[in-house]
Design a protein around this nucleic acid. Structure first.
Length: 229
DNA sequence: GCGACAG
DNA sequence: ATCTTGTCGC
């Protein structure tokens, strides 16, 4: 039995999905600093699809936050439950992610999502949604700026600039590798933006993307091939 | 109405 | 996300 239960009223249409986001957004907690970087566990989450066969595979990889060594891995396969609609990504990814999380024996610690948290049209992206449903601290690290505006950060690793939705800073463009395109970090649930960035830098000692998501990405792809392709 | 648009 | 070879560079 999974300890992370999916709501029984999972929406199947866009209208209802947006209403669900509006109903849950008030539960997002943003006044907690979150776990100190380099302590406990950090868990990467990612999902791969085979829309041709209507199959989706999710992977969660738990890392030791201090060493980045793999502590535990888990995967789950399911049917695609929602189409990709910008702003509604969570409804496509979360069902299978919850199933994979439910297979873990370890405490996930901080969950790092491939996408956004509060940097979202209704301030309730994938990372925030997953955080509210599980109660776990979460952050979002995306590869693209979505609809937000930002100034290119300085070339040196560690530089950052605000990711803006109008005048509001909803996240940060963070340079994780010298001279390489930045990643886009946002708080998800129970973690501050400053700390989300600090975690992201600790997770990127060598590559642009966090080790957690790189590991989860490789794992969900192989899980998908094993299940379908 | 048209274009943009996390993964 | 996914379709896809070679190629430039550290």
């Amino acid at each position: 039995m999974s300890s992370y239960a999916m709501p029984s009223d999972w929406p199947t249409d866009e209208r209802t999905a947006r209403a669900v986001q509006d109903g849950l957004r008030t539960r997002v907690v943003l006044d907690e600093a979150g776990p100190p970087p380099g302590t406990g566990h950090v868990t990467g989450v990612d999902v791969a699809y085979d829309d041709e066969r209507d199959v989706v595979a999710a992977a969660v990889v738990v890392l030791d936050a201090a060493t980045l060594d793999v502590v535990e891995e888990a995967t789950a396969v399911g049917k695609v439950a929602f189409p990709y609609v910008p702003g509604l990504l969570a409804f496509r990814e979360i069902p299978t992610v919850l199933a994979a999380l439910g297979e873990l024996r370890s405490d996930p610690g901080l969950v790092v999502c491939d996408g956004y948290g509060v940097a979202h049209p209704r301030r309730f992206g994938l990372a925030s949604h997953l955080g509210v449903l599980t109660g776990l601290p979460t952050i979002g690290v995306a590869k693209n700026p979505f609809t937000f505006v930002y100034e290119d950060p300085a070339a040196v690793r560690g530089s950052a600039s605000p990711l803006l939705d109008g005048a509001e800073e909803v996240g940060r463009a963070l340079r994780t590798r010298e001279g390489v395109k930045p990643v886009f970090v946002s708080a998800g649930h129970r973690v501050s933006l400053d700390r989300a960035c600090a975690h992201t830098l600790r997770l990127t000692p060598r590559y642009r993307l966090p080790e957690s998501t790189r590991r989860a990405d490789a794992l969900c792809r192989s899980a998908l091939r094993a299940a379908a392709g």
